[in-house]
Design a protein around this nucleic acid. Structure first.
Lengths: 331, 331
DNA sequence: ATGAAAGCGCTAACAC
DNA sequence: GTGTTAGCGCTTTCAT
């Protein structure tokens, strides 16, 4: 004991605490991590001394030694920007659900974009990817890293990939039912079907219309923003398209569409019925209050976290599609 | 060379790549991190071999050796929950600004709550704390860790602490000016002044009214939610309070207040003028459109990130209060 | 331009 | 109940 040189100035290590007390550093380690084999009096003494000396565990050293980090990366597929953060299409509540569950499991979460992740990989045990990217490129990039990972989105990837998402086809179907029930017959679909989830919404929508007299008179690819919805509807009206119902792939699109209709003197739901997607916070504030297909983001986030932790622990894991629900309001 | 045992099954290390090529592991390290001293042909060969063998850098090992993690913790003062995530009072755009700046500097970000942070400290170089907590307890807890840190909020703490926030007093002042300009004389303040930022808003509000004929007839402590705003106004009306202007510490509170007024047959801005705070996304959707004091969250986030990185690099850093701006709409 | 040795701070495995 | 040894995978330092 008492070997090795001192360590003035720098942050004290376990070796410093051990030397101070004339014990082995492993005893300090055991005392501070509540190992049962340490005598209560020793533990108290070590605790106190560590505290007095301002000792802090070096987490990087522990991570290296234990070969695990208790940290999960949440990777956002798109780059953040001032006006279009991950609010669309993946809202805060999804992140909230993930955090909830990771926190409960004592896991940390590093939030990053796909680009930063590739360039500066953090020290992690697993990955939650939000959004597969167009043509699955984001998911492929993550897969190449060889870490346990799960994806939020649509189950369009290779078999074996674990995907959690809403039942988007059923969402499309219930949107169709709603519009049919309102007697709507000439319908518009607004959304970017390169996006797997949106593609599923359209497929379900078409399936829901099959056998009815209603038809989809046009579909316009548009981003998940109000501006894109506005522009899409303006284009339709400029072309003198006739329609009496819209199914939008997000509430933001729906709001933009309604604004464009109003600007041309068309009323909702008088002239046109509109169904959005997500039941986002703005949906119940907007005027008219938006009818929308609700996804349970928070539960989705919890599932993502649970599943990635199961993968890390080498437990068996399967994909999961969550039920959606129509929230009928005034549009 | 070629000493040491093989390493079948497990993930290859630099030693494995080095053995494969008959070079020293330090050469592999230099090649992969673009050290200039490595011959171009060697570098290419090592690159290729590492790729073929599926080699990945062990970030935890590098962090330990270099004594830095290139990771900053963003600590949310409150626990996340399903309905009240960090949307209020710290919105996504603040996080967006932080991410923007950290990403540009090649830094990772771990997002955590104060509780999880204390219980399972992640491996980090510095901390951004969002919200000081009531009575500064959250900031005190972080300070005790002895790491570089900056805080979003009000500059009420000990000198030397680096704080970035909006000029909340000026925000209160311009809200007062607006209400006075509308001829309002009997005013209500809604907000929890235990919260340092809200306290500043009230102080500025009072200062702005000084010398006028207007008075604050009541102030009600309420949380940053629409429900709290609704309840507060209901209580006022039940007590038959007379008032013609409200300054709410957040837009959510303002919306709740307006709903409660409308439910009792009072109109905004006919009977009562209302000023919110934050200019949150809902403010321009709500009906009536909300007049609100705008904070520049994104710039605030960037400043927080810059300053904490400066601290980590032992550069000199000072606190900063950002200007606010009144957005006049229909309330 | 490349290599050998040392060691970052911690904990698993095995004594005693 | 406590200690000794070894080593996680990498990069710094010093040598060649």
């Amino acid at each position: 004991m008492n070997k090795g040189k001192l360590n003035e100035g720098a942050r004290p290590t376990m070796a410093d605490v051990a030397r101070e007390l004339g014990v082995a550093k492993i005893t300090v380690s055991r005392a501070l991590s509540n190992h049962s084999t340490v005598k209560e009096s020793t533990r108290a003494l070590i605790r106190e001394t560590a505290e007095r000396m301002g000792y802090r565990l070096n987490v990087a050293a522990r991570n290296l030694r234990q070969q695990r980090t208790r940290t999960i990366a949440v990777v956002i597929e798109m780059a953040p920007s001032h006006d279009r953060l991950m609010s669309e299409p993946y809202p805060l509540s999804l992140l909230g659900g993930i955090m909830q569950e990771l926190t409960a499991a004592g896991q940390n979460m590093v939030l990053t974009t796909i680009d930063l992740f590739a360039e500066h990989p953090p020290s992690i045990d697993g990955v939650i990817l939000l959004g597969q990217g167009v043509h699955d490129d984001a998911a492929a990039a993550i897969e190449a890293m060889g870490l346990p990972y799960v994806v939020w989105g649509a189950a369009h990837g290779p078999p074996g990939r674990i995907v959690v998402g809403s039942d988007n086809r059923d969402g499309g179907r219930i949107a169709a039912d709603y519009l049919l029930g309102r007697g709507r017959r000439e319908l518009i679909f607004l959304g970017e079907t390169q996006h797997g989830e949106v593609e599923d919404r359209l497929i379900g929508f078409e399936a829901g219309l099959r056998g009815s007299e209603a038809v989809i008179v046009d579909r316009i690819a548009c981003a998940f923003t109000a501006a894109a919805g506005r522009e899409a509807v303006n284009r339709l009206l400029d072309r003198a398209k006739c329609f009496d119902g819209i199914f939008a792939a997000s509430d933001a699109i729906a709001m933009g569409a309604i604004e464009a209709l109003a600007a041309r003197g068309l009323t909702v739901p008088g002239d046109v019925s509109v169904v959005g997607f997500d039941d986002s916070p703005g949906a119940s504030i907007f005027s008219p209050k938006l009818t929308s297909v609700r996804q349970d983001w928070a539960v989705g986030g919890e599932l993502l976290a649970k599943k990635v932790l199961d993968l890390v622990a080498r437990r068996r894991v399967v994909s999961h599609a969550m039920p959606v629900e129509l929230v009928v309001r005034d549009s």
